[in-house]
Nucleic acid binder design. Structure first.
Lengths: 160, 160
DNA sequence: CCCAAACGTTCGTGGCACTAACGAAGGTAG
DNA sequence: CTACCTTCGTTAGTGCCACGAACGTTTGGG
């Protein structure tokens, strides 16, 4: 006999960092599942958006825009280039760099992935009212903006 | 001159799943840093809470309460037992199981870790007003509760 | 008595954030 | 021009973590 299944203690459930971790896992799974169905990964989407939004750029630039490490960026761009969603050409103005350009096919790919992502967000947020959804993104934005920089110290602290 | 540093595109920043992932990383780092200073990990805390809240239990029970896989639970309990924060004894009533009991030292350890965790939550939530903090945990709870089980066979018994 | 399930345990895998190091190229100061 | 420091793309490797496979032991039900 189970005397009482006694699921997760309330005290654990109430901890924000644990809630965030749990929600992040759920969200990531929803997104990844959908993208996997089209043989895509979230990094691909991030790079395509960064290109569409900010225009052609070097790999290091894209790394900064997306938060993807430049070591990992290589593989992502390889895959995107293999599918011809981007072009990767040496920069004539600075031969250390590659210029990454979004192709027309890449633009269409982005549209498609965008729909999948949006769909995943919708399913993720389904238990919330539209107002709550906005509130959540607002609060999360406040959080992440505040705790931004691993290294580049913001001006929040004056040096005595 | 930098033509325009052009940081993360607004379109990426606005995606809830990305916000959640980012916030979760920040939160996890805040917690882990503090616990590492006392040679602890978040799992240790989770197990200690589960014991304090739900009483002595088998390893599988603890696994369910905390969400830690039972394969990983072994190592966690080894460490907790080595430090004598718990006792691990065979269950005379069911010799497949171990009974895990919180020791007095374990209770004190929990108190200590609890303060560290609470401190981390405070720092995490510092950009939010108390009202916003409650709202955030509320919204996150709604989210995780709704998407709760990968599928831990609830008693919605399926036919065949 | 048999069989299926639960338990504790060991080992292994895949994904992901992150670091280290290196050759090539550019910027700059003397 | 030379010397030095930095940036860039790239390869390889590390450490952590969620998760699965398999096994021997034990239990309970038909």
């Amino acid at each position: 006999m189970s005397p009482s299944p006694e699921p997760t203690p309330a005290r654990l459930r109430a901890i924000p960092s644990r809630l965030l971790a749990g929600a992040a896992v759920v969200a990531d799974r929803l997104v990844s599942e959908r993208l996997a169905a089209e043989d895509a990964h979230k990094w691909h989407f991030a790079v395509l958006v960064a290109l569409a939004e900010g225009g052609a750029a070097s790999q290091a630039e894209l790394s900064r825009r997306t938060g993807i490490y430049r070591s990992d960026m290589v593989a992502v761009l390889n895959e995107l280039a293999d599918a011809e969603y981007i072009r990767r050409e040496p920069d004539p103005a600075d031969r250390r760099r590659n210029v990454i350009t979004l192709t027309r096919a890449g633009g269409r790919r982005l549209e498609r992935l965008d729909m999948l992502i949006a769909d995943a967000q919708r399913e993720l947020l389904v238990p919330l009212t539209p107002g709550q959804q906005d509130e959540l993104t607002h609060l999360l934005t406040l959080l992440t903006e505040h705790h931004r920089p691993p290294h580049p110290h913001p001006r929040t602290r004056d040096p005595q």
